[in-house]
């Protein structure tokens, strides 16, 4: 088990409690912001703000809580690639759904 202890020192990052609490406070503030914004009407900007805030929150969770910040490149690739595929699925489906010729019955 000695190798393991050694490994932990070299390959594994220990995040202090303080950082986690700080991230949590930020996440809560962002949640309040997104709820607050939803009471105002900015048209299209509502969804833009909501998604932007959600993405910042998600990035914080991934980077700090999930330690993505300290992971190697290949983990980043497999964490981000699905998002690219999701964009592809949505984007190319839309190229169909919203460009169909209207067929009169």
């Amino acid at each position: 088990m000695d190798t393991k202890a050694h490994a932990d020192e070299t390959i594994n990052h220990i995040t202090p409690y303080r950082i986690y609490v700080l991230v949590w406070v930020t996440l809560m503030v962002l949640t309040v912001i997104s709820v607050g914004v939803s009471y105002f009407h900015f048209g299209i900007f509502n969804i833009v703000v909501a998604l932007a805030v959600a993405s910042v929150k998600a990035s914080l969770v991934a980077l700090y809580f999930m330690h993505l910040k300290y992971e190697d490149k290949i983990t980043w690739v497999f964490a981000l690639y699905p998002l690219g595929l999701l964009a592809l699925l949505i984007g190319l489906s839309i190229s169909d759904v919203f460009f169909r010729a209207v067929v009169s019955p």
């Binding site: 595929l85 592809l88 190319l92 190229s95 169909d96 759904v97 919203f98 460009f99 169909r100 010729a101």
Partner: peptide, 22 residues
Amino acid sequence: SFFVWAHHMFVSGMSEVAATIF
């Protein structure tokens, strides 16, 4: 292979825009 799926659907009533892209 992730970019080409809708070539199975050219006659499904898909939009011409999408059909051309795919």
